[in-house]
């Protein structure tokens, strides 16, 4: 059987996770190419619709990576994102897609190593879950190159 390469969209906050990813790069720490990073000014800016549309357009999992609690540059954007993640998980349940395909993680800008570990673990989890159920009946997954 062909190895399944999940497509992950990671919405990364400019003030933490995105910088952490950058640091991972300069530390020459590799992470799987299936992880497509989208920089956002704050996870509070990630609308549930961004996640829905990513899944609809072929992502197998969506990660929202924001600042540690209390560290949000905009006070509570990360807390809002947490609540929206819970809300999205309810949608996933209703649609019949494993709710683990949408997760929120929190980190600081200095956590380059942890960033790599977190996204790799998330990707491994999605690999275990298999392709997003909505994609299995499709001829082929649309590649998110345009989006990223």
């Amino acid at each position: 059987m062909e190895e399944f390469d999940p497509v992950i969209v990671a919405y990364c906050c400019h003030y933490c996770a995105y910088t952490a990813a950058d640091m991972a790069g300069s530390m020459r720490l590799g992470y799987p190419p299936g992880i497509k990073i989208i920089r956002v000014p704050c996870t509070g800016k990630v609308d549930p619709l961004h996640v829905m549309r990513a899944l609809m357009d072929g992502a197998d999992g969506v990660l929202i990576a924001g600042c540690l609690k209390g560290d949000c540059h905009f006070k509570n954007g990360n807390i809002k994102a947490l609540k929206r993640t819970a809300y999205l998980k309810q949608w996933m349940d209703e649609i019949g897609i494993e709710s683990e395909r949408v997760e929120m993680v929190m980190m600081s800008a200095g956590m380059g190593k942890q960033f790599v570990r977190i996204v790799t673990d998330f990707l491994d989890n999605i690999r275990l879950l298999g392709p997003c159920p909505k994609n299995t009946n499709q001829q082929s997954n649309r590649i998110l190159s345009e989006l990223v």
Binding site: M56, W91, E94, I95, K134, N137
Partner: peptide, 19 residues
């Protein structure tokens, strides 16, 4: 508008699941 977009995506995913 936003809820329309959310529901639209959800309904499309439900039907994609069914092929």
């Amino acid at each position: 508008r936003k809820e329309v977009a959310m529901l639209s995506s959800a309904l499309q995913m439900v039907s994609m699941k069914q092929g």
